[in-house]
Simulated assay, not measured.
Amino acid sequence: MKILKFISVLAILVILVFSFWIYRSLNAPYSHNKNNQYIQIPQGSSPGQILVKLTSEGIISSPIPLKIYLKITGTGKEMQAGEYLFNSPITPLEVLSELKSGKLRTVKLTIPEGFTRFDIAKRITGQFPQNQAAGEDAVLKLTEDISLIKDIAPQAKNLEGYMYPNTYNFPRAVTTQAIIKQMVEEFKKVWKPEYADRASELKLKPHQIITIASLVETESRLDEERPVIASVIYNRLKKGMPLGIDQTAVYIAKMENRWDGVINKSDLESNSPYNTRKIIGLPPGPISSVSESSIKAALYPATTNYIYYVLNVDKEDKSHRFYSTAAEFERGKAAYQTWLKKERK
């Protein structure tokens, strides 16, 4: 009896000591030298393979305490593949908590308002190495997948205007198709059903509204001014006047892969249907990505008699002066050109 009691007490002591060792090991901070390096846990890794990986990388000192903990709790399946930054020092339980998040190393992609699909292609190619070998043309080809917007603009020839300007975070290995799809989905979140109803009230198609919004986007940086810019566009359309928006010449140069940062005389004389110096009416489609502010301006333009505008030389906010007559406009343009000459000296 004494021997059995001794064995029982000894067993209890061993269990207590072992439990204390497990508890202490799981909660003891461990220092490593990989705190600034991403540790990749591949897809399909088993719990055992993950623990071996963490041990070999020096993130944990031994896989045994976590292996026992996972066996007891049955939480091994909660660990996910991903790319992780582990603080140093860090406890095994904190490591396990990180592994349950499934973190992926991401790349921030910022698409400013007014970017064209050519600008977007260049930025995607520059920031995602998997696109660099194929080049910008391969990305541009994907922006011609109009199936993504057939419910909104079935007559569109490409996705220009429908890739929403925003800051996105994508996994490093993301496909270009996924990037473009996400930007279009973001646009669809902004394009509300009532916007289509309003377009119908204006006797315009959504594609025409987005085209007008893109013209507004490229002409003004100020939200409060955009409805007035839109009013000029509508007033010119009603009068049968060319819109005369020089940013369409920039777009033509980008389409023809010859944009050098300067609008040349030849750009303004182009016979392209996008040349609003020559054509009457809207260009065939949008010339840039559009913000919701510009969409709203196109849907709800201000009520004015303005048909001209010139950059306001008296302010630094890039605002414009608006005119109803050619004579007023010529005076305003002369003042602007005088100011421009002084600026260039």
Rank of each mutant, 00 (worst) to 15 (best):
R24F: 06
R24G: 00
R24Q: 12
R24W: 06
L26D: 05
L26S: 00
N27M: 06
N27R: 07
A28K: 11
A28P: 00
A28G: 05
P29A: 13
Y30F: 13
Y30C: 03
S31T: 15
S31M: 13
H32Y: 04
H32G: 08
H32E: 06
N33P: 00
N33R: 10
K34Y: 09
K34I: 01
N36I: 09
N36G: 02
Q37S: 12
Y38F: 14
I39V: 11
Q40D: 14
Q40I: 15
I41Y: 11
I41L: 09
P42S: 09
Q43P: 13
Q43W: 13
G44E: 05
S45T: 15
S45C: 06
S46F: 11
S46M: 01
P47E: 12
G48W: 10
Q49D: 08
Q49F: 00
Q49R: 13
I50C: 00
L51R: 10
L51D: 07
K53S: 01
K53M: 11
L54N: 00
L54Y: 02
T55N: 04
T55V: 03
S56E: 13
S56Q: 12
G58W: 02
G58C: 03
I59N: 10
I59F: 13
I60T: 00
S61Q: 08
S62R: 01
S62Y: 09
S62Q: 03
P63T: 10
P63F: 11
P63C: 05
P63I: 01
I64H: 06
I64Q: 07
P65H: 14
L66I: 05
L66G: 04
L66H: 04
L66T: 04
K67L: 14
K67N: 14
I68Y: 09
Y69A: 13
K71H: 15
K71M: 14
I72D: 03
I72G: 04
I72T: 07
T75V: 09
G76I: 04
G76C: 04
K77R: 05
K77W: 08
E78N: 09
E78Q: 11
E78H: 09
E78M: 09
M79G: 01
Q80P: 01
Q80H: 03
Q80D: 01
A81M: 01
G82C: 06
G82S: 08
G82R: 06
E83I: 05
E83Y: 05
E83D: 13
Y84F: 09
Y84V: 10
L85H: 10
F86E: 02
F86A: 02
N87H: 04
I90F: 00
P92M: 01
L93G: 02
L93T: 02
V95P: 05
L96M: 08
S97Y: 05
L99A: 04
S101R: 12
G102M: 03
G102P: 01
G102D: 02
K103N: 12
K103S: 12
L104P: 00
